[in-house]
Simulated assay, not measured.
Amino acid sequence: MGSVPSSVRSISDLALIAGVSVSTVSRALTGKGTLNQATRDRIRAIASEHGFRLNVAAQNLRLGRTGAIGVLLPLGNQRGQALSDPFFSTMLGHIAEALTERGYDLLLSRVVPERDMWLDDFIRSGRTDGIIMIGQSDQHAVLDRAARHHRAIVVWGAHDPGNAYTTVGSDNHAGGVLAARHLLQRGCRRLAYFGHGDTPEFAARRAGFLSALPEDIRRDTTVVASSVAPEASHIAAHDYFAAGNRPDGVFAASDVGAISVIGAAGEFDIVTPHDMAVIGFDDILLARLCHPPLTTIRQDVEGGACMLVDLLLRRMEGADTQSIQFTPQLIVRETA
């Protein structure tokens, strides 16, 4: 066994002093990998005592890693969606916390696809060790192609057994069914659905909602194409009510859309829930804070964010993973 060094200049020196392997020191100082907490604390204390700080950049360079995970928001058919969107900012916050706990930095990119190779180009740039995609937009074919030759991709969104990529998301169809049944139980019969139909998640919510309606009600239910962007969704709702439509029940495919519907309805003296019951989807913070508080379909955003990070890191280590689908929950508040 080598002699204990009088000063600590490298990770090897620290390993000798601590009486452990170099890899154990690396795990202790980076926070990555499995390690007994007492051992981790002892090694960090020794490093602090000797004024040693790990050069993570140099270590990543030696290992061929960047130490960063890319979080991408593809905006194929929703180009008006901003990074400040309440759902996205909530999801991003939870992902950032989970990545920090695992010792990774986050590289955020809002992508407006101009060509089919945009994801392949990002992967070849070598800027990140893995990719978390928030939503699929209309980029299913792009994601599928990239995932067939690049393991380190996971996607938040609707599950499709034919996907080559691993997804984490809610059972959107079941969420739509929950919304329909609740409106029917309240006695609502003149119904409307607000949401964009070109994304897999919104399409599944709409399909679930319509499938749970009796034939006569489904036949008369209005489907309103509405963006996820607040301004655009408010305009769509305003135009709908300005045309004289007066539903007694509305299911919006997002909480932002539902809040826009309530606001636009108020401009025509339609009071929620007295004149019109409204249900949203997501259960973002605004759903609890708006007036009246929004009845909504909750999806586990925090749990989903942690699962995205966990599955991605497992795939980066070579493990095979299965897509995960959470069961949504009806949260009854004052709007329905």
Score class of each variant (00 low, 15 high):
residue 329 Q to D: 11
residue 91 M to D: 03
residue 327 T to L: 10
residue 84 S to Y: 04
residue 141 A to C: 00
residue 127 R to A: 12
residue 12 S to A: 15
residue 145 R to L: 03
residue 46 I to L: 15
residue 219 R to H: 13
residue 164 A to P: 04
residue 173 H to A: 12
residue 266 G to I: 01
residue 265 A to S: 14
residue 109 S to Y: 10
residue 182 H to V: 12
residue 224 V to M: 05
residue 197 G to Y: 01
residue 7 S to E: 15
residue 12 S to K: 14
residue 24 T to Q: 10
residue 127 R to K: 11
residue 310 D to W: 00
residue 174 A to S: 11
residue 329 Q to A: 13
residue 214 P to V: 07
residue 31 G to F: 02
residue 282 D to N: 14
residue 193 Y to T: 05
residue 141 A to I: 09
residue 314 R to V: 01
residue 146 A to W: 04
residue 222 T to I: 14
residue 239 D to I: 10
residue 16 L to E: 09
residue 196 H to E: 12
residue 46 I to N: 01
residue 246 R to E: 12
residue 195 G to D: 04
residue 108 L to Q: 01
residue 119 L to N: 01
residue 154 V to Y: 06
residue 291 H to N: 14
residue 167 T to F: 04
residue 228 V to A: 13
residue 28 A to R: 02
residue 276 M to Y: 08
residue 41 D to I: 09
residue 332 V to K: 12
residue 132 I to H: 02
residue 151 R to D: 13
residue 245 N to C: 10
residue 88 F to I: 15
residue 87 F to Q: 00
residue 224 V to F: 03
residue 315 R to T: 03
residue 167 T to W: 01
residue 218 R to T: 09
residue 287 A to L: 10
residue 243 A to W: 09
residue 215 E to G: 06
residue 45 A to R: 08
residue 277 A to H: 15
residue 8 V to L: 06
residue 270 I to V: 07
residue 37 Q to Y: 08
residue 23 S to E: 06
residue 130 G to S: 04
residue 174 A to L: 10
residue 232 A to E: 14
residue 13 D to M: 11
residue 34 T to H: 12
residue 163 N to M: 04
residue 319 A to K: 11
residue 60 N to W: 10
residue 202 F to V: 03
residue 121 D to H: 14
residue 262 I to N: 06
